[in-house]
């Protein structure tokens, strides 16, 4: 009520007798709440409740039997203690970091390169650009299965190709070695993420007026100079959105890793997301799985706050 009153007066609603005014305001409020009610209810039911339930679950001994007898005694921080003392946790945390950073850098650099390339008009550029969206059109499970064949050590297409052009003499055990499996998984995720980066960066590039480049050219800013001094600063709001959304999407990647390696070999590609899934749906320790996914939610939340702040700043500047 305190916020609406000054707003109402400022927008020029004449002062009314107290009774009429209250009735009017109440009706006004109701209408306003009615507009946001469907969205709010949807959010509460499908996002608020699961997250709350997840938090509560992480403090319970919530296991297989719970589903049948409904008993889930509260155990304090036991699930968190177990999570943090799990030898796989640190490895999964490190892998999540490497996977996210590696994927984001690769996706962004290649995506930016392609976006700049497609900025130049040339025959078939539209067609080629739409081909780039291919990874988006394929179901993730299909992509993962195909990449498993490509990365196969003995008969995989990638090793055959590399050997064919004389780059390697012994086949690389892409998915079969704890040294290369994470790299291979990152490679595939980069391939998957390129369309997202290209589409957003390309549309960002379209909004940079040509006059800037023309003016820059007069001052001798061409090639790299124009990229660093015109393109990149103008693209900054888009870049921050692309990077932050990229992080939030990448940090929780599950299906791709499950499809490619199942977290193996020997936990080499285990991330917080796969470990949380494994805890809940393979080992049926839903309490500990919830604790682990809450850690993941907190990390994603931290990046979301950065994203919100950047977004608000971009809106202010724009």
């Amino acid at each position: 009520m305190t916020t609406t009153q000054p707003a109402a007066t400022r927008t020029g609603i004449p002062a009314l007798p107290p009774t009429r005014r209250r009735r009017r305001l109440t009706g006004d409020l109701l209408v306003r709440y009615a507009f946001i009610a469907p969205a709010a209810l949807y959010m509460i039911a499908f996002f608020g409740y699961p997250i709350l339930k997840n938090v509560v679950m992480s403090f319970q001994a919530y296991d297989f039997a719970t589903f049948f007898n409904g008993k889930a005694p509260f155990v304090g921080f036991a699930n968190y203690t177990a999570t943090f003392s799990d030898p796989i946790f640190l490895r999964a945390l490190g892998n999540t970091g490497l996977f996210t950073i590696g994927s984001i850098i690769g996706q962004f650099v290649i995506g930016m390169g392609l976006a700049l390339y497609f900025r130049k008009k040339f025959p078939l550029s539209g067609f080629l650009r739409s081909l780039l969206l291919l990874p988006w059109l394929l179901p993730m499970i299909v992509s993962a299965a195909v990449w498993r064949w490509i990365l196969e050590q003995d008969n995989g297409a990638l090793n055959q190709f590399l050997a064919g052009i004389g780059l390697i003499s012994d086949p690389i055990p892409w998915l079969n070695s704890s040294d290369t499996a994470l790299i291979a998984v990152i490679m595939v995720n980069i391939w998957l993420g390129i369309p997202f980066n290209v589409v957003l960066l390309y549309s960002g590039l379209q909004s940079i007026p040509d006059e800037l480049y023309e003016a820059g050219q007069l001052d001798g800013a061409t090639g790299w100079k124009s990229f660093w001094n015109i393109t990149l600063p103008m693209l900054r709001p888009v870049v921050s959105v692309v990077l932050l959304l990229g992080v939030i999407y990448t940090i929780k990647v599950l299906d791709l890793i499950i499809g490619l390696t199942g977290g193996g070999p020997a936990n080499a590609t285990q991330t917080l997301a796969t470990r949380s899934y494994e805890m809940s749906f393979v080992e049926f320790d839903f309490g500990q799985g919830a604790a682990l996914s809450n850690v993941l939610i907190l990390i994603a939340l931290a990046f979301s706050l950065v994203y919100l702040r950047a977004n608000a700043r971009a809106a202010k500047n724009g």
């Binding site: 409740y49 997250i51 339930k53 679950m57 929780k252 809940s280 799985g289 919830a290 996914s293 993941l296």
Partner: peptide, 8 residues
């Protein structure tokens, strides 16, 4: 966030 809260 909703996607992460799978057990929930």
């Amino acid at each position: 966030l909703g996607a992460l809260a799978a057990p929930g």
